[in-house]
Computed example of a mutant assay.
Amino acid sequence: MARYALGEDDLAYAAEFMESPIGYHSPGLQRVLNLMRGGALEGKYVLVTLEPCRRWALARLPGRRGAPVNLVPGIEYTDQQEAERDVFRRRWHDLTGTELKA
């Protein structure tokens, strides 16, 4: 069975996520998020909480469970929604090879 791949039709769901990254998501956006959250772990972008509800850092997952995550030097956030948007953009790029327009 072929795995679903992101395409031009999914740009509307990307816009939906950028509008409201936290909270309820439509079924179409949920499908996109499931694809982004699935697959291989190695190198996947994630957020690490530095101070609960105040500061987050960008990191990449290691290739195996239990190994420490790799913080991306110099990238921290003080706005959780903007942090979520950035991770979404980066995962979109990793899966499609294209940049999401702001």
Rank of each mutant, 00 (worst) to 15 (best):
T96F: 05
D79W: 03
T49P: 01
A67T: 01
A12E: 04
R31L: 15
F17V: 09
R89F: 05
A14D: 05
H93C: 14
G74N: 08
P68I: 04
Y13E: 09
K44G: 05
D10E: 07
P73K: 06
L71D: 00
L41D: 12
L41H: 06
A59M: 03
G7M: 03
V69M: 02
R3C: 10
F88R: 00
E42H: 05
W92E: 03
E99C: 13
W92T: 08
G43W: 00
A12K: 04
E82T: 09
L35N: 02
R85K: 15
P52E: 13
V46D: 03
L11P: 02
T96M: 10
F17G: 10
V46A: 09
A67G: 08
R55F: 05
G28E: 07
N34V: 06
D94G: 12
D86L: 04
M1S: 11
E82L: 14
L11V: 07
M18T: 04
N70L: 15
L100T: 06
G74S: 06
F88A: 11
N34K: 10
A67N: 09
L35I: 14
A59W: 03
R89H: 11
I22R: 05
R54P: 03
R37G: 13
A15K: 07
V69I: 08
P68Y: 00
R64G: 05
D9S: 08
A14N: 01
G39H: 00
Y4R: 14
N70A: 14
A59E: 03
P68A: 14
K44L: 11
E19H: 10
G23R: 09
I75G: 00
L6D: 03
A102L: 12
D86S: 06
L61D: 02
E84C: 15
E82Q: 14
R55G: 01
L29N: 06
R64Q: 13
P52N: 07
I75R: 04
M18D: 09
G7N: 05
R89Q: 12
G97W: 06
L11D: 03
W56E: 02
H93S: 11
P68N: 07
L100M: 10
R55C: 07
R89A: 15
E99D: 15
G38N: 04
R54N: 11
